[in-house]
Write a protein that binds this DNA or RNA. Structure first.
Lengths: 139, 139
DNA sequence: CTTTGTGCAAACGATTTGCAGGATG
DNA sequence: CATCCTGCAAATCGTTTGCACAAAG
């Protein structure tokens, strides 16, 4: 949150990524948004005023950012890949009526106990997806 | 588990679905498998010996079965939609190395407490996705 | 006999790729 | 200045659609 321009540049560099205007713009835009946009929504947003990036570049930027651990995929609907730069762990609530997606704070639930997991499986992370109806749709 | 041929037929009928050889085959195959196949894997499987179904029909069968609540989608990798006929709730473990997917029993974890969820959100289900490395890959 | 499903092939939308020119460190 | 990125257009992959024929209830 509240990253300065120079912070973002340093962050990208520290992960071994070249800082290009396109890559910077993709990451900065994702940091600003909390709505988990798709690649295409991101592209629309960036190119709103004047062309900033192309389709192919959006995808390669997202791949690079993902590989660097700065961005993660969010999979909630079949065939739709969303992206999120808020990599601090959190859960998701998805409204089955309007499709809205809401972040759920990580510490809302007590941590899962992996003791009972089958021996051999080495977990290194998890997330909860909650399905339901949001307030806008239930009224 | 261990459904008889006639059971499956009755089950489909009870959900208001016409029983066609294709639909029957898709559902029966999914019931037998626990590996969450994609539509294409399912098609390969069914048509292994002789043609049973076409691509278009697999997709429409899956849609019908899903609408009837007999099958659910499993989303674990970007762009890959998997299907599962074991609709009793359960969680998933995905190996980040080989991609293997393993079912995790629903009652392995104590139930989540939705009390603290933002008022207005009405949850009606959830699932946990665990990421990690499986025994085959860690040795 | 009416309704719904099937199979084919064409259409589609999201993502990837090859390649020539351009920018980064 | 060597390496890596960008943009374009073509290619690819999974899924959907239109339509004529066949099968289910």
């Amino acid at each position: 949150m509240h990253q300065q321009t120079s912070d973002i540049t340093q962050l990208l560099k520290s992960k071994g990524l070249r800082v290009t205007p396109q890559r910077f713009a993709v990451f900065a835009s994702l940091l600003k948004r909390t709505d988990h946009p798709t690649a295409d929504q991101l592209l629309q947003d960036l190119n709103q005023d004047f062309p900033v990036s192309s389709q192919a570049t959006i995808y390669s930027s997202l791949q690079a950012l993902q590989a660097a651990g700065l961005v993660r995929e969010v999979l909630l609907e079949a065939g739709i890949t969303r992206y999120d730069a808020h990599v601090e762990e959190h859960h998701h609530f998805r409204c089955r009526s309007c499709g809205a997606i809401e972040d759920i704070p990580w510490n809302l639930f007590s941590p899962l106990d992996f003791q009972q997991l089958r021996p051999g499986l080495q977990p290194d992370g998890y997330e909860v997806t909650i399905h339901g109806v949001c307030d806008r749709c239930s009224s």
